[in-house]
Simulated assay, not measured.
Amino acid sequence: MQYKVLKWLSYASCVIMLLVSFNGVVVTRTGSGLECGREFPLCHGKFVPGTTIGSLIEYTHRLTAGIAGLLALVTLIAFLLWARKRRDFQIYAGVMFLFVVVQAIMGALAVVFSQSAPIMALHFGFALIAFASALVLALSVRRAGNLEARQEPPAEHRMSKRARNLTVFSAVFTYAVVYTGALVSHTELAKFAVVLHIASAMLLVLVLLLGHMAIRDYGQISDIRKLGIIVVALIIALPLSGVLNLVVLGSEYYMFAPMLHTLITDFLFAFLCFMSIRAWELSRIPAGEKSSVGLKKAVRA
């Protein structure tokens, strides 16, 4: 019973964090950031906003962020109580809670004081970390449950430190590119756009190299191979969604394209984070040693 609660809490957290990110895109694209005035948490002095579309969009974003914060807190407490032997799960839940709270505070400060470009970019970047933490938690819980169902964890093959470092660097570099992209969307400065295009091209090559290495050199490790395929598919889709943004600019589909671009970006960074964690684990394990601990055994009876 406790295992099922933890599993579904991790899944629900992942979904709500993604909704927060989506709502943020809608707020930015519609220019609804100040539709509730410079007040927080009230909207023009009321708990329930007016009937204007802009105020409803902004208030929905605030409401979703609030629900995300409460769910993250409940998830953290549940893992602290019921998965005491899985310190890694507790860390993922803690990071998720920390960053969803931080990004909410930054969003509130941006409304009350000013919506400067660096603050809004950080607001998006912290929301991205919160989602990545939620997805890492959900994937880790799912993996632990699958290992438990098999009774015995499979023998793990060691990954080299070089492969591990490339994976971690790819995740960090992806975050840097995403932050630059968020900064460009809020400033529209040409010099930042040039930097973004160069960085995006480098990221494309880097992730393609990482995916090729994961599939060719570590294809015997099932989850590393699958993660390699996923990140390659996402990095190919990312520039295509960027082109779609330009194609539909000014049309009735202008909201769909940035949401798709954000979806791909969020999942790319999150899967790279999970891949980095797995690469770190595998780089520290002698070949053939069984490293994973099933979640059900770690849950307090």
Rank of each mutant, 00 (worst) to 15 (best):
Q220Y: 07
I235Q: 14
I264V: 14
G242S: 08
F256I: 12
A270H: 04
L234S: 08
Y254V: 05
L234N: 04
M255F: 04
A257G: 04
L244P: 13
I229E: 11
A257E: 03
S222E: 15
R225T: 06
M255A: 01
L268S: 02
I264A: 05
L227H: 09
V232P: 03
I264N: 03
L260W: 00
I264M: 03
V243R: 14
L234G: 12
V243W: 10
L234E: 10
L238S: 02
L272F: 08
I221T: 10
I236S: 02
I221Q: 13
T262R: 08
I235T: 14
L246W: 09
P258T: 02
I224A: 12
I229F: 08
D223M: 10
T262L: 09
L240Q: 13
F269E: 04
L268K: 01
Y253H: 10
G228I: 08
V247T: 13
P239L: 03
L238I: 03
I235V: 15
M259N: 02
N245V: 07
Q220V: 11
R225Q: 13
Y253E: 07
G228R: 10
P239A: 06
L272D: 07
F271T: 10
I236V: 15
L260K: 00
F271D: 05
S222A: 14
I264R: 05
I230A: 08
L260V: 04
S251G: 14
G219I: 06
D266Q: 09
V247G: 12
S241N: 05
E252D: 13
R225H: 15
T262S: 07
I230P: 00
F271W: 12
A270K: 02
Y218C: 07
F271V: 12
I221L: 10
G228Y: 08
Y218Q: 05
I224D: 12
V248H: 12
I236Y: 02
A257N: 05
A237I: 06
D266I: 03
T265Q: 06
